[in-house]
């Protein structure tokens, strides 16, 4: 199946290349957006900002969650502010009760011809609560996600491919009246690679969507799965939202 899919992809590339072979039109210059974008690597103009809201869904493998729910949807919010000297800062938040996080980030970008690059780092706490039948549990910890991203503009669209490492620190779990701290110190928990597409509308808004692949230890993402497996598993992520 993988060979067939790869062959189809190759065919598409071949076709698209052939399609462009006799096209003599000049590449269009991408019009810079009037305001900041949320995910595109190129830093916004100094003190330019934008805010967005959306949804994020991670689809966990059943070998970890067994017969429990695989899809973990989260409501997301992002705020980005441009800074001088090609820096930018952003705040990204996710929430779903059992898994919430707030991360503050900083990035620095550079541009090479049409491509933009950025180095970024985010740091912040994550926390979760469950008080349903059979649960009297909460947990929190710190997570850091250093990464790089590359961006490509095309007409009114901005593609951003970001790769981040996930570094987790101690996990503090409260069960009833008992508290345990596990895994002291920084731990490399995995990576996340995301492709995001932002479309600049005439109205000024920017809808965005994307998909990603996570390669992480199960308990980073689903601390409630209580898996003691340290091997990393691969699973997809989907994002969509709107920047105002």
């Amino acid at each position: 199946m993988r060979a067939s899919a790869a062959l189809v992809a190759l065919a598409m590339v071949a076709t698209a290349s052939l399609a462009s072979a006799d096209d003599t039109s000049m590449p269009e210059v991408a019009t810079p957006p009037a305001r900041a974008l949320l995910f595109y690597p190129e830093s916004p103009r100094a003190y330019d900002w934008r805010v967005g809201a959306g949804l994020l869904v991670d689809v966990l493998p059943t070998r970890v969650v067994e017969s429990e729910q695989r899809q973990i949807p989260q409501v997301t919010g992002v705020f980005r502010l441009g800074l001088p000297a090609h820096f930018a800062t952003d705040l990204r938040a996710r929430a779903i009760l059992i898994q919430n996080s707030i991360e503050l980030g900083v990035s620095w970008s550079a541009r090479v011809h049409a491509l933009s690059f950025a180095f970024q780092n985010h740091l912040g706490p994550w926390f979760g609560f469950v008080g349903l039948e059979g649960f009297d549990t909460s947990a929190w910890g710190l997570v850091e996600t250093p990464g790089v991203s590359i961006g490509l503009p095309w007409r009114e669209v901005r593609f951003s491919l970001a790769g981040e490492a996930i570094i987790t620190f101690a996990q503090h779990t409260t069960l009833g009246d008992a508290t345990r701290t596990s895994r002291q110190g920084a731990t490399f928990s995995g990576t996340v690679t995301t492709l995001t597409v932002e479309t600049l509308l005439e109205s000024g808004g920017v809808p965005y969507f994307g998909a990603g692949i996570l390669w992480t230890q199960p308990d980073y993402q689903a601390w409630l799965a209580f898996s003691d497996e340290r091997a990393r598993v691969i699973y997809p992520r989907f994002v969509a939202g709107y920047a105002f």
Partner: peptide, 15 residues
């Protein structure tokens, strides 16, 4: 069959 698909796609672009 996949090779046939590739061939058809390539031919189609030449029409």
């Amino acid at each position: 069959r996949a090779l046939t698909a590739v061939g058809l796609l390539v031919l189609a672009t030449l029409v």
